[in-house]
């Protein structure tokens, strides 16, 4: 009996020791993991892009030296590679749609415009690939390639638009999920949140503007206006960044005030306790 009780106590102790990290572990509460620049699609395809540059030089040289049939073969090969790398990039972007930046975005619908753009671009590139393979001359292949690149602009406009749309959506989520509730809690504690609210509203509006801009780019990749649109998206993201930075500065100020207030309370509490325990001296 006694031995069994000891065994139970030991088991209880072991179970508690094993389970304690699970119970007492602090939840990370969705703290954002910083991504590095190597996450960019361009970085992922760095080797392919370098190879493409060499291919481009070889193609340009061939245009002035090779005979018609050889030039056609070289042009078709080069054009196929150009189209294929764009298809690969789109597949990678599609894969990323299910990644952390995109799949969990709930504030705005990022999936629909991105999926629609990828589908349309893929169709255009595949159609161009068919025409290039069937091209009778180098000139036809070259024209088809030129038209496909100008129609899709995968590297110049689509990549930054997809990435930016997801990122802006993710930041909006963060505002809704963390910063808005934080303001509510601070208000409950009678903290003046005027500056916080102003900066957050400003960040939200800049992000929404950037999202709209990115959607416009995605809906019309060949538009000559896209360069200006991306420049304006950049300005909108910069504005959002400034607002969030101001928000952070104000938050730090509030945190300091709260800490000071807490310390004051603790000191007052300590003084009250010690004065009540000290005997009162008569003068």
């Amino acid at each position: 009996m006694k031995r069994a009780l000891i065994i139970i106590a030991v088991i209880a102790l072991i179970v508690m020791l094993l389970a304690s990290p699970l119970v007492f572990a602090q939840e990370s509460q969705g703290t954002i993991k910083t991504t590095t620049t190597s996450d960019s699609v361009r970085a992922k395809f760095k080797t392919d892009l370098e190879a493409m540059k060499l291919e481009r030089s070889a193609y340009k040289e061939a245009r002035s030296t090779e005979r018609a049939e050889a030039l056609k073969t070289r042009t078709v090969t080069y054009a196929e590679k150009q189209i294929n790398i764009r298809l690969k990039v789109l597949t990678e972007q599609e894969r990323r749609l299910s990644g952390a930046n995109c799949s969990k975005v709930t504030s705005v619908d990022v999936k629909t415009p991105i999926t629609a753009a990828i589908t349309a671009l893929r169709n255009d590139l595949n159609a161009a690939l068919v025409k290039i393979k069937a091209a009778g001359t180098a000139e036809v292949a070259r024209t088809e390639l030129k038209s496909a690149i100008e129609k899709t602009r995968v590297f110049m406009y689509i990549n930054p638009a997809i990435s930016g749309l997801c990122r802006a959506g993710k930041i909006l989520d963060k505002i809704n999920d963390r910063f808005d509730p934080l303001i509510v809690k601070l208000k409950e504690k009678q903290v003046d949140t005027t500056v916080l609210e102003k900066e957050l509203a400003s960040a939200e509006s800049s992000l929404m503007a950037a999202i709209d801009t990115y959607k416009k780019v995605l809906s019309n990749p060949s538009s000559t206006n896209n360069k200006d649109l991306l420049t304006s998206a950049k300005a909108q993201l910069k504005a959002a960044r400034t607002s969030l930075s101001n928000f952070k500065t104000e938050l730090a100020k509030i945190a300091d005030e709260l800490k000071a207030d807490n310390n004051l309370r603790s000191n007052q509490q300590g003084e009250t306790n010690s004065s009540s325990s000290e005997p009162v001296q008569d003068n």
């Binding site: 590095t36 930054p160 990122r167």
Partner: peptide, 13 residues
């Protein structure tokens, strides 16, 4: 992340 996005736009353009 926003800095990264701004750099991405510059790089792409």
């Amino acid at each position: 992340e926003l800095d990264q996005e701004l750099a991405e736009i510059d790089e792409s353009l």
